[in-house]
């Protein structure tokens, strides 16, 4: 290769390397701001600020949803299978909301450690399957005593 081209190529590669390091350090420093939500482990460890609008995300714990019969109020536990946080919400839930499904809630953590949400969004994972397959899997895992959506990939809420 011509020496002047070699020199230009070196400059370009140095530019790219330097830029990548700068961006990597910046995003690393800002990671808590880039993370969309706190997970239940962080909240129960006291990492999330109290009475500040934040998002909390996790799976809706099976058997924890309590609906108020007279209003739109719902209470449930959000879990990452190592810690759980109680959430209360008044409003219409998205269609995909179900026990064992992932959600991201926006709201405030009160001093008692309860999360008062004003918006609940549903999160789904990257697994797609026809209803018949999901039904068959559900049947098979019921025999083992597990739920299908929880057992496919529990960490992917």
């Amino acid at each position: 290769m011509h020496p002047i081209r070699k020199k230009r190529l070196t400059i370009v590669l140095f530019l790219l390397a330097g830029l990548s390091v700068a961006v990597a350090l910046t995003t690393y420093a800002l990671r808590q701001n880039i993370n969309l939500f706190y997970d239940p482990t962080q909240i129960s460890a006291g990492e999330a600020p109290v009475d500040v609008r934040i998002r909390a995300g996790g799976m809706v714990k099976e058997g924890s949803v309590i609906r108020d019969p007279d209003s739109l109020k719902v209470e449930f536990l959000v879990t990452d299978y190592s810690a759980s946080v109680p959430v209360e919400y008044v409003g219409i839930l998205p269609d995909l909301f179900a026990e064992g499904q992932g959600i991201v809630a926006m709201g405030r953590l009160n001093t008692e450690g309860r999360f008062v949400a004003d918006q609940v969004l549903a999160k789904h994972d990257e697994n797609y399957m026809p209803p018949e397959v999901a039904g068959a899997l559900e049947k098979a895992s019921k025999a083992e005593g597990k739920s299908v959506t929880g057992s496919v990939k529990p960490a992917s809420y």
Binding site: R31, L36, G57, L121, N127, P130
Partner: peptide, 24 residues
């Protein structure tokens, strides 16, 4: 993968089978 997002991870991965059946 690096951060918590609402968007789900990729269905197609270079090293693994896609997490959907072939007819999809």
């Amino acid at each position: 993968e690096w951060w918590n997002t609402l968007h789900q991870p990729a269905t197609f991965k270079l090293t693994e089978k896609p997490s959907m059946p072939a007819e999809m």
